[in-house]
Simulated assay, not measured.
Amino acid sequence: MKKFLALPVALATLALTGSLMTAPAQAAPVPGAAVATAPGDLSPEQSHALLEQLEAKLPAGYEAKFAATKARLGLQDSDLQKTAEQAINPDDYECPATTPVTDWVTASIADWTLDDRLNAFIILLLDPITYDALFFPEPAKGRFYGLDGEYTNTVKNTFKGLQGFWDINSKDIETVPAHGDTLLDQGRVARALSAAHGFSAADAASLASTMATIVNQPKFDFGNHPLFTFNAFAWSAEGVAIPGVGLPSDKVVMGDGVLEGFRALGLGDVAPKAILAHEFGHHVQYERHQFDSPLTGAEATRRTELMADSYAAYYLSHLKGAHLKWTRVQQYLETFYDLGDCGFSAEGHHGTPNQRRRAATWGLTLATFTFAPRYIIPTVTFGKLFDKVLPQLVRPDATS
């Protein structure tokens, strides 16, 4: 099973963002679990007590166990062979320490205490929102995207356009939202924790109650803080059933947090299209076996991520795709730039901001100037063309 992150969450540093305010919601009670306290600010002593409650329910070596769960489900890359040897030399690349995206995220949690950050860390580690979206998505008819549904039409129309544009069978792929206030629904959270991590019903209910109490505060936007859904990704079960769940459909998951983040940066009209087009590109890669290459570790991940950037830019620029104007093209190039990272040796390295901008620019050029305006390059051919140009896209670019 595979998951391909567009926006990997930095759990260790909690360097993510958001400042939304919604009407407080009450968490639904779960049989056998204490009902969450009324929404409102908790004292430092209460926050610390809740942290201790969370930690008491976690198994020994929980970080490694949860990482193994994600690896088994394809929720993170697992091939670490020769990663250290093939890691890129950071000194050869221009890569800023922060971007407007990371700055926005960091500012949103500036007033959190250490206990707040640790509580959020454990919630992100358990990740019930992701598992709920993957295993138990809400009915298709009622799905909406964005806190107020403001991106629903954009996401649905863009996805329909992508399905008609690329020459793959995409009828088995669906888009699903990830909403932060899922954390207040103790029944859903408990179900997700049991399915993903094997918690007993009692322990899952207890964890769900504690998490609902933690996030039901203004500082966490009553669950809707973008930190908890600052992600978008493509996922395939690869035909393998999940015990207790069955065979989930292939998906593109769109988190409210990432949509809000780019809206705050003035990219709300273009980023949803660009992000969805990137994730759909991963499904193209899956269908066309384009993850196979001689590369390993960080270099292999970087290749697939940059290719997805190119797929997205091609679709967004193409006359028969989204056909965005040049001003919009510049905006989504800036979007891709902000999504770059400098984790050169990390397994999930997506490419530096400059590399991602070059990959998107290459896709734009291919769509606009290289072939007949109405001709759509077959996906098999597209992959071959990309591999030929890849060395140019990842060339060293440090100025000193």
Rank of each mutant, 00 (worst) to 15 (best):
F66D: 07
F66V: 03
F66N: 03
A67G: 08
A67F: 01
A68H: 03
A68I: 05
T69I: 05
K70S: 04
K70F: 00
A71K: 09
R72D: 11
R72T: 12
L73Q: 08
G74L: 13
G74I: 05
L75F: 15
L75V: 04
Q76R: 15
Q76G: 07
D77F: 11
D77H: 07
S78N: 14
S78A: 15
D79W: 02
D79L: 02
D79A: 11
D79I: 05
T83Y: 02
T83W: 00
T83P: 03
T83Q: 12
T83A: 15
A84M: 13
E85I: 09
E85G: 06
E85N: 07
E85Q: 13
Q86S: 09
A87D: 05
I88Y: 09
I88M: 13
I88G: 03
I88C: 00
P90S: 08
D91Q: 11
D91K: 11
D92P: 01
D92T: 12
D92V: 00
Y93P: 00
E94A: 12
T98Q: 08
T99N: 03
P100A: 05
V101T: 05
V101S: 10
T102Q: 03
T102D: 08
D103G: 03
D103L: 14
D103T: 01
V105M: 10
V105G: 15
T106K: 13
S108Q: 09
S108H: 09
I109H: 01
I109N: 10
A110K: 14
D111H: 10
D111M: 03
W112N: 01
W112T: 05
W112I: 06
T113Y: 05
T113F: 02
L114M: 11
D116Y: 01
R117Q: 13
R117S: 14
R117C: 10
L118E: 14
F121V: 01
F121Q: 14
I122S: 00
I123C: 04
I123A: 04
L124C: 12
L125T: 15
L126D: 00
L126W: 02
I129G: 03
I129H: 04
T130S: 12
A133E: 10
A133D: 02
L134H: 00
L134Y: 00
F136R: 14
P137C: 13
P137K: 10
P139I: 08
P139N: 09
P139Y: 09
P139K: 10
A140V: 15
A140M: 14
K141F: 12
K141N: 14
R143S: 00
F144Y: 15
F144I: 07
F144N: 08
Y145F: 15
Y145Q: 06
G146E: 12
G146H: 11
D148H: 02
G149R: 08
G149N: 06
E150G: 03
E150L: 06
Y151W: 15
T152V: 13
T152R: 12
T152H: 05
N153Y: 11
N153F: 11
N153R: 15
N153L: 12
T154G: 10
V155Q: 06
K156Q: 13
N157D: 15
K160R: 15
K160N: 14
K160V: 07
K160E: 13
G161Y: 04
G161M: 02
L162M: 05
L162W: 01
L162T: 04
L162G: 05
